[in-house]
C-alpha cells in the first residue's frame, strides 16, 4: 500500500510541478493546491499506514495508528487553505489592475 501511495504522490507531484510551470496564474494556483494534496498524503504515508486503529481512545482499542502526522496534516491543511485563499485573491487583484493572467506579461520593466 505504501508503495502504491508513494507512486500516487509522485504522480501528483509531477502534475503539480507541470502546472506550476505554466504561464497562467490559475494553473499555477491549482498546481500549488495539488502539491499540497501530495504533501498531505506524503506526511500521512511517512507516519505509516494502516498500522493500528482509529486514534480515538474511547471508540477503539490499542494499537492506534500514528496520530501525530494527522495532527500535523490538519495544521498543514489549514495553512494551505489560507495560502490558497490569499493567492487567489492576489491573482484576482492582478487581473483587475494589470489586466492579465499570463505571467509572461508580468515580467516587469527591465532596468536599463
Amino acid at each position: 500500500m505504501e508503495t502504491l501511495i508513494i507512486m500516487l504522490i509522485g504522480i501528483l507531484v509531477a502534475v503539480a510541478t507541470y502546472l506550476i510551470l505554466s504561464r497562467n496564474i490559475i494553473r499555477i494556483i491549482l498546481g500549488t493546491a495539488v502539491f499540497s494534496h501530495a504533501v498531505h498524503l506524503l506526511i500521512l504515508t511517512m507516519g505509516g499506514l494502516k498500522q493500528g486503529n482509529v486514534p480515538l481512545l474511547k471508540e477503539a482499542n490499542a494499537p492506534y495508528t500514528d496520530a501525530l502526522p494527522q495532527a500535523l496534516i490538519l495544521t498543514a491543511i489549514v495553512i494551505s487553505f489560507a495560502v490558497t485563499a490569499f493567492i487567489l485573491v492576489l491573482a484576482y487583484r492582478i487581473y483587475q489592475d494589470i489586466g492579465t493572467d499570463d505571467l509572461d506579461e508580468l515580467r516587469g520593466a527591465k532596468d536599463e
Binding site: 506550476i20 496564474i25 495560502v83 492576489l90 491573482a91 492582478i94 494589470i98 508580468l106 516587469g108
Partner: peptide
C-alpha cells in the same frame, strides 16, 4: 502594479 507583479512571484 509593480507590487502585485512582484508579489505573485514572491508568493509562488
Amino acid at each position: 502594479k509593480r507590487q502585485l507583479r512582484e508579489a505573485i512571484k514572491y508568493v509562488v
